[in-house]
């Protein structure tokens, strides 16, 4: 097959490496992993350059490869067996499964929505995300940042559908509580 297009990998690195790096970093939260993902993206792009569709933009093509590398990363770090002990939720709920007095969601200020554009919100959210267990972080990023379907996430992480819903529930319990304390400073 004759290539109808000239590829210039040096230009890929010059033009897209920083933005792909920032994209990957915001999802895997580790500089070393993010660097590896960007590097693998370019290498894969080079090796699969014949599959590049003429009508796609080079940037979108590289992003698509990068997204796959991010999912591969989560597959690798997910480990094997996961143990879902319900004790993890006991800090929020009492024996009758209702909110403990100090854990019940507080009233957030009416104007909290307007602060999400700020860097501070994302910094706090990332800090909270890093406190989650590894598999919870993976689920959170794949669901809420990459917007993948539950089936895709379960297959990638090798978890059952019921485990998936438990993990989503716990991500939300932990992150909500963490944001309330550290972003809105409600004690």
């Amino acid at each position: 097959m004759k290539l109808t297009r000239d590829f210039d990998p040096d230009a890929w690195v010059d033009n897209y490496s920083d933005e792909l790096y920032r994209y990957a970093l915001s999802r895997v939260s580790d500089k070393g992993f993010a660097e590896d993902i960007v590097q693998d993206t370019f290498l894969s792009a080079w090796r699969s350059r014949e599959t590049y569709a003429e009508n796609a933009s080079e940037k979108n093509w590289l992003y698509a490869i990068c997204k796959n590398k991010i999912i591969d990363h989560f597959r690798k770090v997910s480990g094997n067996a996961i143990h879902l002990s319900s004790a993890e939720e006991d800090i929020y709920f009492d024996e009758s499964e209702h909110w403990r007095a100090n854990a019940s969601p507080k009233n957030w200020p009416v104007d909290y929505h307007q602060y999400i554009e700020t860097k501070e919100f994302y910094t706090v959210l990332e800090g909270c995300r890093k406190k989650l267990k590894s598999v919870q972080q993976s689920v959170f990023v794949m669901k809420f940042m990459e917007e993948l379907e539950p089936d895709h996430i379960c297959a990638t992480l090798n978890i059952t559908s019921s485990n998936y819903w438990v993990l989503i529930h716990r991500c939300k319990l932990h992150l909500r509580s963490c944001l309330e304390k550290n972003w809105l400073n409600i004690q």
Binding site: S26, K31, Y122, L125, F144, K172, L175
Partner: peptide, 17 residues
Amino acid sequence: QTSFFGKNAKGHQHFSD
């Protein structure tokens, strides 16, 4: 509150790295 941060999570970027 959780649907709010779920919807906005993808806006996260590291601007200066």
